[in-house]
Design a protein around this nucleic acid. Structure first.
Lengths: 97, 97
DNA sequence: CTTACATATAGACATTCATCTATGTGTTCG
DNA sequence: CGAACACATAGATGAATGTCTATATGTAAG
């Protein structure tokens, strides 16, 4: 299981949080993520940058991946996110495990 | 209230997580935090570095502060931590607020 | 008032990181 | 096979960050 520092680092970026939020309820291919980000962010973002962020999230186990033809779809692994949040709350709770 | 990116950045460091864990159940002065960290970390850590981390946590509203004579005591604000964790879980949950 | 102690701040330095452009890899279609 | 498309990777660059040493600030004691 991903440790709490790795999780925190993974979500400690505005762009990655926006990507995660986009992927929280659906599968999206990379170019669609790029388009959505460019609609909500003032400064544009390039496809390689999005790919880089997705690889960080994938390495952390926070997103799942599926290829469909030329496209690759990503979605947020909500179970892992929930587990990590719980892990952090326990880390800083009065009664530690 | 602190935003989710600020919170994530604040906890995205191993030393700060150790400090937060030390402060989760008690008030501690800076030198005691330094001592405790130097017991659990392989590489030593200096007092200015701990002070720096504490200021980051204080600016984020994650710790409370109290002066007692020459010493300054810190403790983790668990309510804020819990709220931030909840905020993140909601951000990435299927049904957004 | 001066000294000692606890903590904070300043400045320097090395490392990490987010981003870009350019290019490579893999897949589909004619 | 070769062109077109979607995505990943490589390398460069500037900004942010964690750490240190040196020093300043604030408080108590003699």
């Amino acid at each position: 299981m991903i440790d709490s520092v790795t999780f925190a680092k993974a979500i400690a970026d505005d762009t990655r949080q926006k990507i995660m939020h986009s992927l929280c309820c659906e599968w999206m291919c990379v170019s669609d993520v790029v388009d959505r980000l460019n609609k909500q962010m003032a400064d544009g973002i390039t496809q390689p940058t999005v790919s880089h962020h997705l690889s960080i999230l994938r390495d952390a186990g926070l997103v799942d991946t599926r290829r469909e033809g030329k496209q690759i779809f990503y979605t947020l692994n909500q179970e892992v996110v929930a587990l990590c949040c719980g892990q952090i709350m326990q880390l800083f709770a009065p009664e530690k495990v």
